[in-house]
Write a protein that binds this DNA or RNA. Structure first.
Length: 836
DNA sequence: GCAAGGTC
């Protein structure tokens, strides 16, 4: 007698074999795939693992050309099922031919049943031996032996429910995705696919709804009156009982009544005990949330880690909705096991010292038990068995959560003080942990004490400080990945196993992104969701999934025929498709606009900013007839601005036009041009947009010195135009540094000499003070000598090394000559730093 | 090139 069993995956097959074969297992190869041979109860056993689904649906070949098939026709076509993993088909048939009995031993859920049926279908092509089903929800020896000792009939309805889902999901996803993608491509050039699906779309919908709430939020002012009191035992804070006061006058009135208060009275003191129960047992969503919140592990990694811990026999099956332990769950022997493990010993012993009462949730989906440890293990043992860095941490979380479920509630002592200050009521409260209970085993929850000094009833306390603080109500916060998972779970979006994948799909499509633990919508996602919620609102909401799920559930429960469910589902999808078609224009124009905007934003060289008229993107447009600034909203938006005809254009991102708030372009090396206004030197606000970089205070008046450069001459001038000027090194590149001279406070210059002949390895760069009225500056000028100075000033300088009356009078004319041009051309003259 | 669901 030979029994052949198919498990969902190789690791599960190996585990089953090692349990049933009691260690005496031969690993063999069937068509190149691993299988396990052993003897159990006098029979020959062969167990092979599949690789999840080995079959899939797709449309017949001729429907695969997007451009030739109207997407709507897909809804009337029956997809075909075909084998995706040929090697498994060969192995299944090979084993089936040797079998006297076949047992399906995939995971015990809807998809597992379906995967088993894939094997069953292929096996039945070569044999007609009986096929039965082994059901186990943990790869523990007890569960597995029980399941194989009493196999049941395969559940046809359960498998067909999954089949219906596959077909409906494909029809809808393919038709909608092609329709939206092709429609948008009529208006904007893009290679990207805009996908739609019954799970990914509502997932994005949650992020969209939150974003809408954030955008619609209007902050309101509120006031809060607080006091700092001082008692014998120390200081503490109290809040006026009115709490957040939204009326400014009212807050001011109360605050007025408190004016001059020096003393408060403790009218009443109450001390209460409060209990916090342990959290519910872990189902998948709760586990993923806690892994993210406590361990900072992403949903995908957390699920994969739990999967590996399950396969290695450390923890139970990780995909479950149930958060209630079974009535006959054997807590005692498991806790005994933990009592032998050093890290968990104290908690386990305290649990064993009294009758065990588990904390239970209310969900029993009859799928798998809550995620719990199968056996106690040390961290080192876990990390060497499971090759994922976070494995030990995740095991520890699961184990501690399990132990916490069996421990008593935590007890807090809450103290509340009711105070009066000039008849105005204040409250103050504190919390102290009296009995840690389950928190002892659960260090992830950080319940900090809020201490109050010891204060007695009727005690008088000093008022140290009173404040009336204005605050603003804060907008809703962005969703966290954990919250998103909660929403998905609550609305039945995806399975426990795929929820993380749907989040990833949306990221891949550019619909939203995650920064740290928070999720933010992107423009494409926002406009797509907006378009969909106007045309097919049901798609953006979780309703779409629940409608299909309800149909499938009826198939699973045997209340509806498979074909009937398919027909009904297809009608539903056709209705939505009609709505999509009817709203094609509204749906696609905004998305197309966003795609064009994104392309324009990417084009850093030409991107200018956003259009005040329509909100789309302004960018430089080059045509055969010239160039201008135009809007990506064209032709709906005709906003445009002229540009100078010649000269290379550079967008100055660090400069903002103070007049119109528009972008500023640099034209060649000559001048600047504010978009929408024209050349900056014609604008009276030029000085404000381009404040001169000052070197230091003017020694003659209360102005500041700044660098004025011309093509063949440069010097420092005074912002107040008092006439004082100062020479600078004649040659070399001068850069004003943010570093001040320690002696006089003027900013230092970095002087980079152009490479002179035969200067060898001498450093060409130095930081210098050039102030002639400063000891440092004097040193510099002495060193370089008069020859290095500007020609125009050389005469004066040689006669008068430090500044004097002579310099002043001559300088005035130079400055007068300069200022006329400086205001118009200084920026062009290279005297100021421009950032690119 | 489309979905969601398994798993590697």
């Amino acid at each position: 007698m030979t029994v052949v069993a198919f498990a969902e995956k190789n690791k599960a097959a190996a585990q089953i074999a090692s349990i049933l074969g009691d260690g005496e297992v031969d690993k063999i190869s069937v068509e190149g795939l691993p299988a396990y041979e052993f003897k159990w109860k006098g029979e020959e056993w062969l167990v092979m693992g599949l690789s999840g689904h080995i079959m899939n649906y797709d449309f017949p070949e001729k429907y695969n050309k997007w451009s030739e098939v109207d997407p709507g026709t897909l809804l009337g076509v029956d997809p075909e099922k075909f084998v995706t993993r040929k090697e498994y088909e060969a192995a299944i048939k090979n084993l089936a031919k040797r079998a006297d009995k076949i047992i399906l031993a995939c995971d015990y859920d809807r998809e597992g049943e379906n995967i088993g049926f894939e094997a069953k279908t292929l096996a039945e092509e070569v044999t007609n031996v009986p096929v039965s089903r082994a059901r186990f929800s943990a790869l523990s020896p007890k569960e597995v032996r029980k399941a194989f000792e009493s196999p049941v009939d395969p559940d046809h309805n359960l498998a067909m429910a999954a089949e219906a889902r596959q077909i409906l999901d494909l029809k809808m996803g393919a038709a909608f995705t092609r329709f939206v993608t092709l429609s948008v491509r009529e208006k904007a050039r893009t290679k990207d696919v805009l996908s739609i699906g019954p799970c990914q779309t509502p997932t994005c919908g949650f992020v969209y709804e939150r974003e809408k709430a954030i955008r619609a939020f209007e902050a309101k002012d509120f006031w809060k009156i607080t006091a700092i009191f001082a008692a014998k035992g120390g200081e503490f804070e109290g809040t006026h009982r009115a709490g957040n006061i939204h009326d400014k006058e009212k807050a001011a009135e109360i605050f007025k009544r408190l004016k001059g208060a020096k003393e408060g009275l403790v009218v009443k003191k109450t001390v209460k005990e409060a209990k916090t129960s342990p959290p519910n047992p872990l189902n998948t969503t709760e586990f993923l949330k806690r892994a993210s919140k406590f361990l900072g592990i992403s949903p995908e990694v957390a699920l994969e880690t739990a999967e590996q811990l399950y396969l290695a026999g450390f923890t139970s099956y990780p995909r479950t909705e149930t958060n209630k332990y079974a009535d006959d769950f054997d807590f005692k022997s498991l806790v005994f096991d933990f009592a032998r493990q050093k890290e968990y010993k104290p908690f386990a012993e305290s649990i064993l010292s009294a009758p065990i009462v588990p904390k239970n949730g209310e969900k029993d989906a009859h799928d798998h038990p809550p995620i719990h440890p199968i056996r106690a293990a040390a961290r080192g043992e876990v990390s060497s068995a499971v090759n994922i860095p976070q494995a030990a941490e995740v095991y520890d979380l699961i184990s501690r959560h399990f132990l916490a479920n069996l421990m008593p509630a935590a007890v807090f002592e809450k103290t509340h003080l009711h105070l009066k200050v000039q008849e105005e009521p204040f409250d103050s409260s504190g919390t102290v942990l009296k009995d840690a209970g389950w928190l002892e085993a659960y260090p992830f929850e950080n319940k900090k004490d809020k201490l109050l000094p010891f204060v007695e009833e009727k005690e008088k306390v000093d008022v140290k400080k009173l404040s009336n603080t204005k605050s603003k109500t804060s907008p809703p916060k962005k969703l966290t990945e954990a919250e998103l998972l909660t929403l998905m779970d609550k609305h039945g979006i995806g399975t426990k196993a795929t929820a993380p994948t749907h989040i990833e799909t949306n990221k891949k499509r550019g619909y939203f992104e995650t920064k740290g633990k928070t999720v933010s919508i992107l423009d494409t996602g926002f406009t797509l969701m907006e378009g969909l919620s106007l045309s097919v609102p049901i798609l953006v909401r979780p309703d779409i999934r629940s409608k299909i799920e309800a149909l499938i559930q009826e198939v699973e429960d045997g209340k509806k025929e498979f074909e009937a469910a398919l027909d009904e589902g297809t009608v539903l999808i056709k209705e939505m498709y009609a709505q999509l078609e009817a709203n094609k224009k509204e749906l696609t124009s905004n998305i197309a606009g966003t795609i064009k905007d994104e392309a324009a934003l990417e084009d850093k060289k030409n991107y200018i900013g956003s259009c005040k008229a329509c909100g789309h993107v302004l960018r430089i447009v080059q045509t055969d007839s010239g160039r201008f600034v135009g809007c990506t909203g064209y032709p709906d938006c005709r906003n445009s601005f002229p540009l100078p005809k010649t000269g290379a254009l550079t967008v100055l991102r660090s400069k903002e036009c103070k007049k119109e708030g528009a972008a500023v372009l640099k034209v060649g090396n000559k001048y600047n041009w504010a978009v929408g206004i024209g050349p900056c030197f014609k604008c009276e606000l030029e000085k404000e947009c381009y404040p001169p970089e000052t070197v230091g205070p003017c020694p003659e008046c209360d102005g500041s010195m700044f660098l004025i450069s011309f093509k063949d001459n440069r010097f420092l001038g005074c912002t107040k135009r008092c006439g004082y000027t100062h020479s600078v090194p004649k040659t070399g590149k001068l850069t004003l540094l943010d570093k001040a001279c320690e002696s006089c406070g003027w900013k230092l210059f970095r002087l980079k000499e152009e490479k002179g002949e035969g200067e060898g390895n001498e450093s060409p760069e130095e930081d210098i003070c050039i102030n002639r009225r400063c000891t440092e500056g004097i040193k510099y000028w002495k060193k370089v000598g008069p020859r290095n100075e500007n020609r125009a000033q050389q005469k004066r300088v040689s006669a008068e090394p430090s500044a004097g009356p002579g310099e002043k009078s001559t300088a005035r004319s130079a400055e007068r000559q300069a200022t006329g041009r400086v205001s118009k051309a200084a920026s062009a003259a290279g005297g100021r730093k421009e950032s690119k």
